[in-house]
Design a protein around this nucleic acid. Sequence first.
DNA 1: CTTGACCCTCACGCAACGTGAGGGTGCAGG
DNA 2: CCTGCACCCTCACGTTGCGTGAGGGTCAAG
Lengths: 244, 244
Amino acid sequence: MKLLSVSQLARRTGVTVRTLHHYEACGLLQPAVRSAAGYRLYGEAELRRLQHIVSLKALGLTLDAIRGSLDTDEPSLAEAVRRQAHRLRETIAHQHALLLRLEHLQQRLAAGEAIDSDTLLKTIEASTIMEKYLTTEQQQAVQQRGETLGAARIREVEQAWPQVIAGMTAALQLDKEPASEEVQALAAKWRALLREFTGGDAGIQRSLNRMFRAEPATMQQHTGIDPALMAYACRAIAALPVEA
Amino acid sequence: MKLLSVSQLARRTGVTVRTLHHYEACGLLQPAVRSAAGYRLYGEAELRRLQHIVSLKALGLTLDAIRGSLDTDEPSLAEAVRRQAHRLRETIAHQHALLLRLEHLQQRLAAGEAIDSDTLLKTIEASTIMEKYLTTEQQQAVQQRGETLGAARIREVEQAWPQVIAGMTAALQLDKEPASEEVQALAAKWRALLREFTGGDAGIQRSLNRMFRAEPATMQQHTGIDPALMAYACRAIAALPVEA
DNA sequence: CTTGACCCTCACGCAACGTGAGGGTGCAGG
DNA sequence: CCTGCACCCTCACGTTGCGTGAGGGTCAAG
């Protein structure tokens, strides 16, 4: 039964000496004995335990969880593995969604030759806000919808909105009847553009409404639509004839 | 032009007051002015800047990167997005590989009714070691191979190995000729079992050899094969007739 | 006796804040 | 004028898993 020094144990298991110090400090792995000079000495049992620790760490467990699994033994270990898998699945899903957004941005950076940083930041902000109010599935639906429409159509829509909004704002300021022919034409366009975004999904529509109610200031900055205009537009759309 | 207090700004942007303190401390967002009593007051420019910060943070950028992007402007921003996407792709790939191993473990936990923690830890260690010596593609190949074979066949193989190894060890100790009929039979089995694992991939075979050369002690613990036995087995296999 | 090669114990640093501790400010009501 | 209450301030430690010295003993060999 021979004993190993810190550096020997470290080499055998691929960790650093400092790591072994740390494990001792947090009660994860005590040396078998100390030499007269205070040197740490480890036996075979410690070697095995350290190998277990390294393995579990490779699975992404925290040192706390590892200590728990090794000390309370058996059932805890299986449980820890299950929990870890679950957590990992979630973080991966989260990061994957993030990656989609980043790639979307990259496309716009590549396509829209020399996009100005202002537009870029606006795009980022829009998706950040949507992230707050839409569920993951809804976001994926919007993403899908964008791909179905294609970049060209999206640009058209983005250019059409300001015109419709400007028209509606003017109508509101001139105090025109929501039911008047002119306003009804605007309302029809508004509804059509909106549907281009929602894809007809009532859930997404509701989420958008929540967004405008919860953060009127932010939404006005991004869309130019304030609560008053929103209310006016809603009245106008409500007055539209029912669709076939 | 009205000014906002810390908590007002915090509410508008969904961050905490402490976070604003932190951003000021690391030079990311200074208040427009301070009141006579030392209260932080923010203007519209600061509101916008904070919104940008929040957006970029939602993309996973570090505060350092954000400061760089916002202060040096334009090209840095696009660059940062590109780099971030790249890094994220890598970490996702890494975590995905980890998840595969965890799920594999979970299956064994579910299938092998009440698997003992010792076996479990051995399994974990085996995959940890493989991770060190096999490339990502090779690991996926092994994973695939395991699925092709099925859990039942894997158990058979795992039971067959110790017998072959024991036989070979005995032969070595009795100093039998590697070319003798008995040893040749063992060698044939050995090669067949090995091939069951590698799937005939020469690269994986080479990686296994590296593993045994680099960490004889660890490998002996797991497989019971020490360098001497390995050499003997190799001689025996080399003496096998060439396959059809 | 000296020279490396090891060993020890502090203790700060990292990323991005959370969470009090201890104490001032500002505005309403009694 | 005093008292709440809500808000503000500045430290400063805790988190996770070690990396990276600083400053100083220990051990076997030449």
